[in-house]
Nucleic acid binder design. Structure first.
Length: 537
DNA sequence: TGGGTAATAT
DNA sequence: AATATTACCC
């Protein structure tokens, strides 16, 4: 036993040490086979009796990676029994019987392959393929102990060798065998086709397929993703202009993480690979292009990869133009990114605007507090434009990674910065802190505190109208946005209402009794506590 | 031809 | 679900 599950974790020479359960009623044949397999560094556990074999598999399933079972005219029931029992063990059937129906039955019952005797060394040598196939095509969690190391080992192997897939990047080194590359390290969602079983592949689904994944994915052909740059452009857009690289920059180590872009999903063709994402500077818009197929036939129009750097450029361009002038064509010009099209920019711009718009409305909602809240709103007094609030020129501050919500979970590379230093500080979006957060919380000097408006309490709120109070009925129904200030205000209001005998907080002006009564009526409250009337007037 | 936006596609 | 692309309309 060379390998226990643990040992295997470091299974460097993978196929070697593979544990094979051999079930063959013919002793001579079994011995011969065993010798051959052992010569290949496989570990063989021979059984002559199917029940013993079945027992072994049942009791120690982790002790075997693959089984080779002989099927003969007189023992076939036992063989089939084994086959049906050892569903989780890739089983290769062998026999002198060459009739197609027997073969079919074996496969139908779940055998991964049917090999006619005599077994060629070649076939034997490659039985590990079934194991790998199994390892990569079984639901991640269902992976048996014995398969985990296999998978890890293979993954690690694949990672070491940059598959040939990779576009011609200068990588230069090509792996020969790579016919199957594609490492999906963690999970192999995709699938199976990539690791086709050896010779008699297919049917895998026949019997055991519970794994489902086997069947589903044949589809991988679906993709169209391929690539190609349409006419020329798009391909490597590069942001040459270094500009802010410094800030935005390079450090982002984790770079490749995002490599995947969406395409890899299925693509059978190639991998993502560290692709084009240029390291440090520049760069990047790479549209993905699988170099594998040179012909640009791919009709697919590549997607622009709006990397942080590229986005930064975009933002800078917008800034430079000013909100009003920021139209796709101009932005495009300023960006000077080769390959980028006006459409790309327009699309991005659309998203950009939407992001902001989402923020604004919230501000608007708060309009009811307008006066007192001025501090926030006055940041961009001028145009209410739907699209962009003047976001520029507010010095300061922390950088908000996202267009919209800084709080956003940094899952994606797009606007998030995870890892990347946010685009340069200034201009971007400091114009306003995320609505849900008090500016101060972001260390943002929150604008010129309108005279009288204190950070915590809206004391001066001379404009605090009664109706506000009423509407909310003292309840934070509108609190939705979690605005600290609002909460504070609410609290104050509530308190003022509940304890009319206390002096109103600074800045709060008592509503006229009439307005209060009117509002109460409106809300269906017709009975008014005497003291209100009394004190009121 | 271009911009903006809704509808789709990924 | 978030983005990018397309389709359309002005």
């Amino acid at each position: 036993m060379v390998c226990t599950a643990n040992d295997l974790s470091t299974w460097k020479d993978f196929p070697k040490g593979l544990k094979i359960l051999l079930l063959d009623g013919d002793t001579n044949s079994a011995n011969e086979l065993k010798s051959k397999l052992e010569a290949m560094d496989y570990i063989v556990y021979a059984f002559h009796d199917e029940n013993e074999a079945i027992l072994a598999v049942s009791s120690r399933p982790e002790s075997f990676h693959v089984a080779i079972v002989e099927v003969s005219t007189d023992n076939n029931n036992g063989s089939f029994k084994f086959l049906e029992t050892a569903k989780d063990l890739p089983t290769i059937m062998t026999s002198n019987i060459h009739c197609i129906s027997t073969m079919m039955k074996c496969i139908a019952l779940g055998a991964v392959e049917f090999l006619k005797k005599p077994l060629s060394e070649d076939k034997l040598r490659n039985i590990w393929q079934h194991v790998v196939h199994k390892a990569f095509n079984t639901g991640g969690n269902d992976l048996t102990e014995s398969l985990k190391p296999v998978k890890e080992s293979v993954v690690s192997m694949l990672q070491q060798q940059p598959e040939n897939l990779k576009p011609k990047n200068e990588d230069s080194e090509k792996t020969e065998d790579a016919s199957m590359i594609h490492e999906n390290d963690s999970e192999p969602p995709a699938g199976n086709d990539k690791y086709p079983a050896p010779s008699t592949p297919q049917l895998e689904q026949g019997g055991r397929l519970l794994d489902d994944r086997d069947c589903q994915d044949h589809t991988h052909c679906s993709i169209e993703k391929e690539s190609g740059e349409q006419d020329g452009e798009t391909e490597s857009v590069e942001t040459t202009s270094g500009n802010t690289t410094a800030t935005g920059g390079q450090p982002q180590g984790p770079s490749e993480t995002n490599v995947k872009e969406e395409d890899d999903s299925v693509d059978g063709t190639m991998g993502e690979s560290p692709q084009n994402r240029v390291d440090s500077k520049g760069s990047d818009v790479v549209a993905e292009k699988p170099s594998s197929c040179p012909d640009k036939a791919n009709r697919k129009k590549l997607k622009v990869d709006w990397t942080p750097e590229l986005h930064k450029k975009f933002v800078q361009a917008v800034d430079q133009l000013g909100i009003d002038q920021a139209i796709p064509s101009r932005i495009l010009e300023l960006m000077k990114v080769e390959g980028l099209t006006r459409h790309n920019v327009a699309s991005h711009l659309q998203k950009y605007r939407m992001q902001r718009r989402h923020m604004l409305p919230k501000e608007d909602d708060r309009r009811w507090l307008q006066r007192p809240q001025m501090q926030r709103i006055c940041n961009y007094p001028h145009k209410p434009i739907m699209a962009f609030p003047p976001y520029h020129h507010v010095p300061v501050g922390p950088v908000y990674p996202m267009w919209g919500a800084p709080s956003h979970p940094p899952t994606i590379q797009m606007w998030g910065t995870q890892g990347y230093p946010p685009w340069q500080p200034t201009e971007s979006w400091h114009w306003k802190p995320y609505p849900g957060v008090h500016a101060d919380a972001w260390g943002c000097p929150v604008m010129p505190p309108p005279q009288g408006y204190f950070s915590t309490f809206p004391q001066n709120a001379s404009g605090f109208q009664p109706c506000n109070v009423d509407k909310r009925n003292g309840m934070p129904q509108t609190l939705v946005e979690h605005h600290p200030e609002e909460e504070v205000i609410d609290k104050m209001v509530k308190e003022a209402i509940n304890k009319p005998w206390l002096p109103l907080p600074l800045g709060l002006k008592p509503p006229s009794t009439d307005s209060v009564l009117a509002e109460l009526y409106r809300q269906g409250i017709s009975t008014v506590p005497p003291h209100i009337n009394a004190s009121g007037r």
